[in-house]
Design a protein around this nucleic acid. Structure first.
Length: 111
DNA sequence: AATGTGACATACC
DNA sequence: TGGTATGCCACAT
């Protein structure tokens, strides 16, 4: 029944990521209070499709701006296409201007 | 219950 | 530069 609190937090943060921006597993983890729990965020992403497929999981990359999870979108190119559709340029599975479009929950939400 | 795995991150060598 | 080890938390077997 009730999903773990951190799971809801992850989805809450994820839903707030603006179009054309990206964030990282680590920043989300930090936003929910566990900086070292980035793996949980990744785990949440793996299950997000079964809970709420409308969440922009493609806007989450690792700390290098690399699309590490692209193989979990059905087709390897789907994640990149979704990002480019929002104006995010991706080259070699890496987000260009990563630092510029990086969306940091703790800063943007002014928590 | 114990072990292995994972869409991560950090530290160390 | 790149591999190895550890921390973290949940899940699968």
């Amino acid at each position: 029944m009730s999903r773990p609190a951190y799971l809801d937090e992850v989805y809450e943060i994820l839903a707030l990521v603006p179009e054309g921006r990206v964030t990282t597993y680590g920043h989300i983890a930090q936003a929910i209070g566990s900086k070292k729990s980035a793996r949980i965020v990744g785990w949440a992403m793996n299950r997000v499709h079964t809970l709420d497929a409308s969440l922009p999981a493609h806007r989450v990359v690792n700390r290098n701006g690399v699309l590490t999870g692209k193989h979990h979108f059905g087709d390897p190119d789907r994640m990149q296409k979704l990002l480019e559709k929002e104006g995010i340029r991706v080259k070699n599975d890496q987000v260009m201007n990563f630092q510029k479009i990086l969306w940091i929950p703790l800063e943007e939400l002014n928590i």
